[in-house]
């Protein structure tokens, strides 16, 4: 399989000046996404995971934010492109679906017309032809009787169908990269499974790259092949799925893994991460996670650990040595495995 790099983000910083101070929503982030990847970005609210992708698409207000770094999409730096050039990429080569399908479609326009509009804004084809393509798209994402549902308004669709329509719209131009921002969070569990399946199917059929942003480690571990864990505007750990979930290196990743109740580990107590995520205006000195970290030691409150491979085979941003990490993680897991068996 040939790996073609679709998106390369280099040292991206997105800072919003506000009355209270500078909000560092994204603060020095680098990652790459290849064709065929499902790149999972995990983080809690305020970790910067959504801002990163909105910035890549040129949807953050450039006047309201200081943006530095590079976002190379198929070799072109999106941050240097003008508004019109960016618009031509959006929806055509790079598409996005969002969390809440209830609010993401315009309530006053028919679903079909909204997709037709998406087609016509990049392709100069007759309207009839665009309508035909919309029927095909709606059918392809599993909406029954697409010709009839074309004429429906969004409120006549269920949540799952709206998300399907959003996917149909995103795939209208056969983009290279699909960014899915919490695509299943607002949906029912059984419908979530349908949508995740659909995204996976779309990925293989159209041979594209997918960025999947979510707070749900379970979702990421099921569908992503690469994972990046974000905290306070930075990546704290990054690697293949097996690396990150099989051999997690960062105390924050550990905390996330331990906070999720597992259906099959009944009885073991959850280990929450103490405290709350820091304010993005006054991030702590040193490692931004150190005030919540049970393993902090001397350099943590002074030196900001850079993200690099510390001997585990994949990069992380924690001062602990790889050997130390293996020991601590094994210790933390011990009571859990005991309780489960």
């Amino acid at each position: 399989m040939s790996t073609e790099t679709l998106l390369e983000v280099k040292d991206l910083r997105v800072h919003f000046p506000t009355g209270d101070g500078l909000v560092k929503a994204v603060d020095g982030l680098s990652f790459t996404v290849d064709r065929g990847d499902t790149f999972g970005i995990v983080g809690e609210s305020g970790s910067g995971k959504s801002v990163t992708n909105l910035t890549a698409l040129g949807l953050t207000d450039r006047n309201a934010a200081n943006i530095t770094g590079e976002v190379l999409f198929k070799g072109r730096d999106l941050l240097k492109l003008g508004k019109e050039d960016l618009r031509k990429i959006r929806g055509k080569e790079m598409a996005m679906i969002f969390q809440d399908p209830f609010s993401c479609l315009h309530p006053f326009y028919r679903v079909g017309d909204q997709i037709v509009e998406a087609i016509l804004c990049h392709d100069k084809i007759p309207k009839k032809q665009a309508e035909q393509r919309t029927y095909d798209l709606l059918g392809a994402v599993g909406i029954p009787k697409p010709k009839e549902r074309f004429r429906d308004f969004p409120h006549q669709y269920s949540g799952g169908m709206r998300q399907r329509a959003m996917i149909a719209m995103a795939m209208a131009h056969n983009p290279d990269l699909l960014i899915a921002d919490e695509p299943t969070t607002a949906l029912d569990v059984t419908v979530q499974a349908q949508i995740l399946d659909l995204i996976e199917r779309v990925k293989t059929e159209f041979d594209i790259g997918v960025i999947l942003i979510t707070h749900d480690l379970g979702v990421v571990s099921e569908v992503a092949n690469k994972v990046m864990v974000m905290y306070a505007g930075r990546a704290v750990e990054m690697g293949t799925r097996d690396e990150v979930f099989g051999n997690p290196q960062h105390p924050y990743t550990w905390g996330l893994l331990e906070s999720i109740p597992h259906v099959d580990h009944k009885g073991s107590k959850l280990v929450p991460i103490e405290g709350a995520p820091p304010s993005l205006i006054r991030t702590p000195n040193g490692c931004s996670f150190h005030p919540r970290c049970p393993h902090r030691f001397d350099p943590c409150d002074k030196d900001d650990p850079e993200i690099k491979d510390r001997g585990a085979g994949h990069p992380d941003a924690c001062h602990l040595s790889a050997a130390e990490k293996t020991r601590v993680w094994a210790e933390r897991q011990a009571p859990r495995t005991k309780a489960a068996s």
């Binding site: 949807l59 959006r90 598409a95 969002f98 479609l105 315009h106 309530p107 998406a118 804004c121 719209m169």
Partner: peptide
């Protein structure tokens, strides 16, 4: 509104 963000994300002209 989210749907305006959608409109921009799909590449509509301003």
């Amino acid at each position: 509104e989210d749907y305006i963000r959608t409109a921009r994300a799909k590449g509509l002209k301003e």
